[in-house]
Design a protein around this nucleic acid. Structure first.
Lengths: 318, 318
DNA sequence: CTCAGCGGGAGGTCCCCTCAC
DNA sequence: GTGAGGGGACCTCCCGCTGAG
């Protein structure tokens, strides 16, 4: 719970800190959504700071582009509406149109995790496959005994992949970065600098996806692949689900603001006996399913329902 | 309703365009959330393009700041995690801490609409109050007959405020902009340039908050306040509610990803008979209320439920 | 290894101006 | 009014380097 400078380090609790800061700042709802997104993308998803900012400006560019279409392709009007220079508006329009024509990937948060992180376990296992029974590493500089010692340190649970030395590991990162840049137009590509390489290496080690091995008798460090995914399976799935749910919920609410037919929004604020919380939620779950079953008819009008229920916080207001 | 430019124009439908573009681009959920936010803030809320981008970078800065706290105030580690220069990390930390200490407003989407737009009707009515029975405008350059003609053009429904000439109108914008900048530290303040003034004037006229009057016999244009709010009341309220709901939903889902006790998430995908849609939703509404009433007990554990239900779209997946 | 400084380049956000249709 | 160009200021995000504890 506590954290503090210098001396103690606090690795595990992530959210509490965020909520603490948020509660002290009285922030608007729109800003809060941005912050939740940023935290998820940058801390859990592993996106770079710059990548998030770029994705946000991309979203803003799309807003400009749609305004442009809605106002009869009038550059000047679009410029006035959003307070963007006509010259810049033209550049934005062109950028978006080029992407639409080529079907290239425009935006920068294209996946929950950046490819150079999430793709690594796959590429590693593919390029350096390990067959059970064979040695995971084979280095002429080591005596057979030293090799065996190292092998025995490796947990059985590690994915079937060989142990690499630093250069092989860095090459892998380089390869992945190159592949991840292929989708982008040449102009937007980012060179793989030393700083970026270090960043990627750090995230892979820090997350436990890759583990560094002690090799006192070797001058070059060795690395082992410890997980098949960048993020732990459970967490990863849940964060994915959350973002999908929020996006769907957002879209439904947009329909609601337009007062479309057959769209409903509900907010329930209430208190329950502490020992009946779980019971209440279980009953709600059952109610919803029964309700959906009751009205379901194959091939009918497509419907969607998104719900979240839990502990109310002061920031929630009302 | 109509206006025109060149050939075809398309003023009314706003969302359809956005959805069209979105559906062609197959965009990730995180990006979709950003886009929804950008569209709402920039097109409906009237925020500037730059304001949205700044708000997003502010969110990213907060993410960096919390990382910094969670890693024992280690600048270098934070730098590696997010791929931000140590120098820049330090600047970000300082910026956030200064804000936390002074309680100043950090972020830029502090309200749904920017103050220089939403505050105008109030200031206008306050500075140029109009008493029924008195003339709305009094200009010595006009004959009594001409004044009367203009007065008669004004709908009764207009708020009780006098008609202003261009200079008075621009002064009002200037005053509002100055007031809206007071909360910001001097460094971040933006000068009221001609371009910005034109942007604000355009938005006020374009939204119908202010209406320009034809004055053939006068060399200076006249303006009348036509609405008491920047956005139409209903729409305004609904957009507010939507953003609040999404923020609350997002927070609940974060609790869910952490597998907290007593948090529930539900997604129902189903089809119904077209003619039973409304009936189904009404019943659902009733079910929820009954359920909440059943478990409610004053002073108990604080609970919150957010729900949205409506038409399923292809983009929704599953 | 961490902290600290200073150098640079590219690109984006702002500002203002003119000229042709 | 709109389109299309010119200029310049400032900041931010990237990169690289060196030196002090």
């Amino acid at each position: 719970m506590t954290h503090s400078a210098k001396s103690t380090v606090n690795e595990d609790p992530q959210k509490p800190e965020v909520d603490d800061v948020l509660s002290e700042l009285d922030i608007s709802s729109a800003d809060r959504i941005l912050i939740y997104l940023a935290v998820n993308a940058m801390k859990l998803g592993g996106h770079r700071y710059g990548a998030f900012v770029e994705a946000a400006t991309t979203a803003a560019k799309l807003a400009v582009y749609t305004s442009y279409l809605e106002h009869g392709n009038n550059v000047r009007k679009t410029s006035l509406i959003h307070h963007v220079e006509p010259k810049r508006v033209r550049a934005i329009i062109k950028e978006v149109q080029d992407v639409l024509e080529d079907g290239k990937s425009l935006t920068t948060l294209s996946d929950q995790e950046p490819y150079y992180l999430s793709g690594l376990p796959y590429l590693w296992q593919e390029k350096y496959t390990w067959q059970p029974g064979e040695p995971r590493l084979n280095r002429s500089e080591l005596t057979p005994g030293e090799q065996q010692d190292l092998e025995e340190k490796l947990p059985e649970s590690y994915p079937p992949a060989c142990v690499l030395d630093l250069f092989q590991f860095l090459d892998l990162i380089k390869l992945l970065h190159t592949k991840s840049q292929e989708d982008f137009p040449p102009r937007q590509r980012m060179a793989l600098s030393d700083a970026l390489t270090e960043h990627i290496k750090f995230r892979l080690l820090h997350s436990g996806t890759v583990v560094r091995m002690d090799t006192p008798s070797l001058s070059i460090p060795l690395f082992a692949l410890a997980r098949t995914h960048y993020a732990p399976k459970g967490e990863r799935e849940r964060v994915f689900t959350m973002i999908d749910d929020v996006a769907r919920f957002f879209r439904l609410m947009q329909d609601w603001t337009q007062e479309q037919e057959g769209v409903m929004r509900a907010l329930e604020v209430f208190d329950v006996d502490s020992d009946r919380r779980v019971e209440a939620l279980q009953e709600l779950d059952q109610l919803l399913q029964n309700w959906a079953d009751k009205y379901h008819r194959d091939g009918g009008y497509p419907m969607l329902l998104q719900l979240a229920a839990g502990t109310r916080q002061p920031q929630d207001g009302q």
